[in-house]
Structure formats: structure tokens, C-alpha cells
Design a protein around this nucleic acid. Structure first.
Lengths: 144, 144
DNA sequence: ATTGAAATTGATAAGCTCTCTCAAAATGAT
DNA sequence: ATCATTTTGAGAGAGCTTATCAATTTCAAT
């Protein structure tokens, strides 16, 4: 538990170093909490961390999650009215199957789809940096 | 020009009828303006229509565009801080190639990708209703 | 054509998410 | 330990979207 996520912590510190940013208690705390999630909203993280750290500000959470995006550890995704911050530190990238009824989210990766995306992009003169694929529907439990 | 979009107008009226909603001047006006676009924001439509109809309220535009989504004529897509309403009346659905530099948007369709999506969904017990695929990168002009 | 219940509109207030502001605190190179 | 620089927390503010509500419009039934 203690020495989990060492690699990601190093990645963050490298990013901080390169940009004249500082290592702070809050950044380490938020990163370690973030890495335990697949994806989370700033608000949810705020409430989660409030239990152990009541004075951690919501603005700091937002700032820090956006920092993680810059550092390549997270990826922002607009879902409904809120922004979900996806943990992309272990898997390079993942797409989502989202149940429109119960909100369940299943992550997946598919190389064939990614390859076809590259084809489409090339055909249109684009160079892809990232992508977002979300499939909306009903999960097995909600379909009946 | 006058009798364009008759099919879509019928589709809207069918939806209205089924839900005890009424046919209004505003709904017809907004639909006919909307169908001339590939995609548009509520704000942009507000300004566009203000020229010919200065008293059309922004709330009405939002309400109506959301109505079009319910009716299956439009599809909302969050891009940046705003919501883009995509015209999906002619093509069943379209995906987007988005240039992160100049904001250029290219629409495309790819049956092979759609087929693979179905596969992924089935494998996970999902039944897809809609999907969203956005490829972010640089267009040929911005790449150099 | 008139009536009247129900839905819609326009204007604005309110809500929600997210960012900005700034004084106080923390960091880290010296 | 010092001190310039960055960060934080708290709340104000901004931007987009929805809720409110009196006035108006629609439309089914006269």
C-alpha cells in the first residue's frame, strides 16, 4: 500500500521538474488517491478526501487533476454535465461502454478499431494525438 | 428552399403528436435553420436567428434543440465548454475528426469500425443505442 | 368561429461546474 | 536559515444550461 504507484509518482515529479513546479503534500496526496480510481470527478474526489483532509480546497483538486492531464497521467472526458478524469497511467488509453440506464461503465481496448481510426485519419490528412470512443446502450442487467 | 426538409418536419410532428406536444412557429423555424447545419451550438443559433427574429429566446433554442435530440433528429456532443448539437437527420450518425489546433471538424463514417463496436458491446453484454467517436489531432495544414 | 384546458414562450433568475483572485503558507535553491 | 517563487484555500466570478412564471399560443371540442 505504501510503495504503490512509485512509477507514476516519479512521472509526476519529472513533469513538475521540467516545468518549474513544486512537489507538494497535496499533489502527492491527490495523485495517490487518483491512482486508486479508474475514473473520478473532481467533486467526488473532493468529498472522498474531505474525510481525511477537511481543508483541501476544491480548486486545488481541479488544478491538480488538470495538472495530471498535462503530465499524461490522466485524461479529461466530458460526460453529462461533469468532467470525468480517467486514469490512463496503467493502460495507455481506454474506451468506454456506458449503460444509459444505470450508469455502469465498462472499459475496453480494441486494436482493430484503433487501426481503422488511423486509416480514417490518414485518409483525411490528420495526425491523431488522442481519441475518445464511447458506446452508449443498455447493459445486460438493464436490458430485460 | 421552401419545401426542403419535409421528411424531417414530418418526423418532428410525429414525435410531437406522440408526446402531447404542440407544433409551434418557433419549433418549425428552429428545425428548418438547424437542418441547414452540420452542427451548431445553441448560442450560435441564437445569434443567427436573432437577425430575422429578434425576440426568439435563448431558452427556447436550448429547449428546442434538446427536443430534437429526443426526437432523434439531433445529437448533443460536449466539445470544450459548450454543447454542439449535431444534425443526424440525413446521415444516421457521423463521427468526428477534430483538429486541436485550428478547431476544424471533419465528419466521417466507417462501417468497419461500427461493426467492431458491435462486437465489443456484444462481448460485454451491452446493446448499443448510440456511440460517439472523436479523433483528436492535427489537420494537414496545422501539422507542418 | 369560439371557447378553454394544456402546452409553450420569452425574459430573467437560478444552478451547476469550473476557473480566477489574492493573501497567507509552503517549497526548494542558495 | 533566507528568500524568491510557487502553491494553497476560500470565496468570488464566469460561462453554459436549466428552472420559473406570467403572458401567449395551440388545438380539440364545441
Amino acid at each position: 500500500m505504501a510503495n504503490k504507484h512509485v512509477k507514476e509518482m516519479e512521472a509526476l515529479k519529472e513533469h513538475l521538474g521540467k516545468h518549474q513546479l513544486k512537489v507538494t503534500r497535496q499533489r502527492e496526496l491527490i495523485l495517490s488517491a487518483f491512482l486508486r480510481q479508474e475514473h473520478i470527478t473532481a467533486e467526488a474526489m473532493y468529498h472522498q478526501l474531505a474525510k481525511s483532509d477537511p481543508h483541501l480546497g476544491l480548486a486545488t483538486i481541479y488544478r491538480t487533476l488538470n495538472l495530471f492531464c498535462d503530465a499524461g497521467l490522466a485524461q479529461a472526458r466530458h460526460f453529462g454535465t461533469q468532467t470525468q478524469y480517467d486514469n490512463i497511467s496503467h493502460k495507455g488509453h481506454h474506451d468506454h461502454l456506458i449503460c444509459t440506464d444505470c450508469g455502469k461503465i465498462v472499459e475496453f481496448e480494441n486494436c482493430d478499431i484503433e487501426r481503422l481510426q488511423e486509416e480514417v485519419a490518414t485518409r483525411n490528412g490528420f495526425t491523431i494525438k488522442t481519441h475518445r470512443l464511447e458506446l452508449y446502450g443498455l447493459c445486460s442487467r438493464c436490458r430485460h
